[in-house]
């Protein structure tokens, strides 16, 4: 009987602290990508509402939440659903709308880094080219963009502020290095008030 390989953490699970800022690895969620079939989109949205109690966000750059399930807009007719480990997300989604969408397990493909603390938005803005002002980017916002040269999905987690950077697992070391360097660079005087 072959040994079953279990994934190890791509970076240290110890949070890094610089001043009041914290950069930490988020707990590994179960993640499934949803690609809606073009001909059954209305049925897909209806089934999601019925079975999950959450809508698949139709407005680009938004997210919805229902209990511990979160659904991010991830492109035209594409979404990324995540729920805590052990919640059987794939089975739930298969049962809810397996006939209307391509479901792919992404649990091992992505890792989430959480940057939090006062001025976290200023640190994030050093890497991300989008406007993070609360007027443009709030709690239900999602952005697919670049952090430095690394493709990321940015989500604002709470108003502390704190941001989740969802990144491909193989790139998380580089992203962690970049964010840590941005934190160590300090908060520009022009941004302090």
């Amino acid at each position: 009987m072959p040994d079953i390989l279990s994934p190890c953490s791509p970076i240290s699970t110890e949070p890094c602290r610089v001043g009041g800022l914290t950069l930490a690895l988020a707990p590994p969620d179960e993640t499934v990508s949803i690609g809606g079939f073009r001909n059954s989109l209305p049925a897909l949205h209806e089934a999601a509402l019925q079975a999950l109690g959450a809508s698949l966000p139709q407005t680009p750059g938004t997210a919805t939440r229902a209990q511990d399930l979160s659904i991010l807009w991830a492109g035209p007719n594409q979404w990324l659903a995540s729920a805590p480990s052990g919640s059987g997300l794939m089975e739930k989604l298969q049962a809810a709308f397996g006939a209307h969408a391509a479901l792919t397990d992404q649990t091992d493909s992505r890792v989430t880094l959480t940057l939090s603390g006062p001025y976290a938005h200023v640190i994030a803005a050093k890497l991300v080219p989008i406007d993070l002002h609360p007027r443009c980017f709030g709690l239900s916002s999602v952005a697919l963009t670049l952090a430095g040269h690394i493709p990321v999905i940015v989500v604002q987690r709470d108003l502390e502020p704190s941001y989740n950077f969802i990144v491909f697992r193989s790139l998380v070391r580089s992203l962690h290095h970049d964010i840590l360097a941005a934190m160590q660079g300090g908060i520009p005087k022009s941004e302090q008030n």
Binding site: G61, I130, T145
Partner: peptide
């Protein structure tokens, strides 16, 4: 049309 205005590097 989906993401808003972004730099050409994307």
């Amino acid at each position: 049309p989906y993401c808003g205005t972004r730099g050409v590097e994307e």
